Simulated scan of single mutants.
Amino acid sequence: MYDLKLSKINLKQNSEVEEVEKFLESFNLILDKDVDYTVVLRNNVDKIVATCSKAKTVFKCFAVSSDLQGEGVTSTLITDLIDRSFNEGIYHNFIFTKPQNIDIFSSLNFKLVQKVEKVALLERGIYHIETVLKDIIDKYSIDLNKKRASIVMNCNPFTKGHRYLIEKAALDFEEVLVFIVQEDKSLFPFKERYELVKKGVEDLQNVKVIPGTEYIISSATFPSYFLRKEDERLRQYTKLDASVFGKYFCRELNIRTRLLGEEPYCKVTRAYNVALKEVLKDYEVKVIELKRKEFMGEAITASKVRDYIKKDRMKELEGLVPKVTFAFLNTKRGKEIVENIKKSNSPH
């Protein structure tokens, strides 16, 4: 019926990218800056009639012309993205889409993870969120009879402010699960962030430090956290991430409280805190926001630590970071990261 041609977009070629952007505009969509692969279908006059992209494991920016909807076009696009993922050694994918597209992707063996008003997240592959949580329960010997508190942290890097929040939680609750954001988009890589927290709280016997997985503040659940954009999508992403946490992590791990650090500076994190309070009450999870630990009259933040590093104020860091972090910054690996921070313009 239709003479359609599948082709890959050269993301380094501005004219090709602009053509996709213009097509997506008609659907009130944008081509996200983090995509690494974009495919289109063109008609017999070389006009784009459908497109989809991926950013590592996440499929996004999906649109099909209205006259082609229901014609199997989606399957063609998604099959190409799955093949591309397989070639890259990726065997599990998410898709961001509008809620009205859930049935389309469910028919292609994607399983709904969660949806909010304007965004739905589905997944497909060799595992799913329930199996990931079961692995956490087994690996970290989670006693499901205990009611517990949780904290989610990026720790870029681990500061005295983070230690204070964990320490306070450990005093007030029987057990505390600390999830470290696993997405590697921070100046301190996940491996180092995770190890610093583990070493930094090893004296707290009722604290377990756990990788955050792809389901907590990741490109799949909350891309705005890393994009740092205050646009109309921010509220949807904050609600999506918060509801995934409530629906799955709190329910499966018997988390009854989530602790937050008060956010005096970052509007994105502050918006996230608001969403957590709104959403988690629907899952009967209490949210406690604690005032941050201060040094010299100012809240201790990881961004302040990175700023000190950038300005070569290394000796002053002892007031902001625990001994484990300060010692790490003076190791060979730590010095490499310090140099990268000094060269970087990134806020992360």
Rank of each mutant, 00 (worst) to 15 (best):
K5D: 07
S7D: 13
K8M: 04
I9K: 00
S15F: 04
E16C: 09
E16A: 13
V20P: 03
F23M: 03
S26P: 04
N28S: 14
D34E: 15
V40E: 01
I48Q: 07
V49D: 03
A50G: 11
T57P: 04
D67W: 05
L77N: 08
D80L: 04
N87A: 11
T97W: 02
D103P: 03
F105I: 04
F110H: 07
L112P: 02
K115R: 08
V116R: 03
E117I: 10
L121T: 11
E123S: 13
H128M: 09
K134P: 00
K147H: 12
K160Y: 10
I166L: 12
E167W: 13
L177I: 05
S186P: 05
F188A: 01
P189V: 07
R193H: 11
D203C: 08
Q205D: 13
N206V: 09
V207M: 01
V207L: 01
P211G: 09
A220T: 05
L227P: 02
D231S: 12
D241R: 01
D241V: 02
L253P: 03
Y272C: 01
F295W: 13
A299M: 11
V305Q: 05
D307S: 15
P322F: 09
K323F: 02
K332Y: 12
N345E: 14
P347V: 06
